[in-house]
C-alpha cells in the first residue's frame, strides 16, 4: 500500500464527510474555528486508527467528533473558570455568538438560512444531534443509536420529536413575520 493511495483515500473521505462533520461539531461549539479544530483532531485520530473503513462506518467518525467536541467544551469551561479567578469579571470581552450559517440552500431554494438555523439552535441538544445525524449525516436510526450510545428506538423517537418541534418553531417564526 503506497502513501499515494492513503492520501487519496483520506481526501476523498474528508471531501464527502467534512461538511457534515463540521455541522455536527458546530452544535456544541459556537466558534467555527473551534469546530474546525475539533473536526481536525477527531478526523486525524480516527484516520490513524484505521480510518480507511470510515466510509463503511460513518457512525464511529461522528461519535469521535462528538467526543472531541465535548472534551473541548470541558476544557473551555475550565479555562474560563481559571480566567474568572485570575481577573475581574469585565476585563475580557464576552464571546460573541457565532452568526455564520450552519446550512446553505440547494440551488432553487429561495429561503434564507437564518430562520432554519435559529430554529435548529433552539431545539433541545439531544434532539438536534439526532436530527443532524439523520438528515445531513445520512445515518440510519441504528447508526445514530450506535454513534450516540442510545437505543435505536430512542434515536427514532428523538428524531420524531425533533421534526415536530422544528416544525412548530418554523411555523411560529412565520407567524411572527406576519406570513
Amino acid at each position: 500500500m503506497g502513501s499515494q493511495d492513503f492520501s487519496d483515500d483520506w481526501r476523498a473521505c474528508f471531501a464527502e464527510l467534512g461538511p457534515r462533520l463540521l455541522l455536527f461539531a458546530r452544535q456544541w461549539l459556537p466558534s467555527v474555528a473551534d469546530a474546525e479544530d475539533v473536526v481536525q483532531e477527531a478526523f486525524i485520530r480516527f484516520w490513524r486508527k484505521g480510518g480507511r473503513r470510515a466510509s463503511a462506518n460513518q457512525g464511529l467518525l461522528f461519535a469521535a467528533v462528538r467526543t472531541a467536541a465535548l472534551d473541548h467544551l470541558r476544557h473551555e469551561s475550565r479555562r474560563r473558570r481559571r480566567e474568572q479567578t485570575a481577573l475581574d469579571e469585565n476585563i475580557l470581552p464576552a464571546v460573541t455568538a457565532c452568526e455564520e450559517p450552519w446550512l446553505i440552500p440547494d440551488e432553487g431554494t429561495s429561503e434564507s438560512s437564518g430562520e432554519l438555523d435559529a430554529a435548529l439552535r433552539q431545539l433541545p441538544s439531544e434532539q438536534r444531534e439526532v436530527l443532524v445525524l439523520k438528515v445531513w449525516g445520512e445515518l440510519t436510526h441504528d447508526e445514530v443509536g450506535a454513534a450516540l450510545s442510545i437505543p435505536t428506538n430512542t434515536a427514532a423517537s428523538r428524531y420524531r420529536y425533533a421534526l415536530g418541534n422544528l416544525k412548530k418553531l418554523l411555523h411560529a417564526t412565520c407567524h411572527e413575520r406576519g406570513h
Binding site: R20, L22, P101, L103, I104, P105, D106, T109, L116
Partner: peptide
C-alpha cells in the same frame, strides 16, 4: 430540510 446542505469546509 433535505433541500439544505451543510456549509462547505474551508
Amino acid at each position: 430540510l433535505r433541500r439544505w446542505r451543510p456549509v462547505a469546509v474551508r
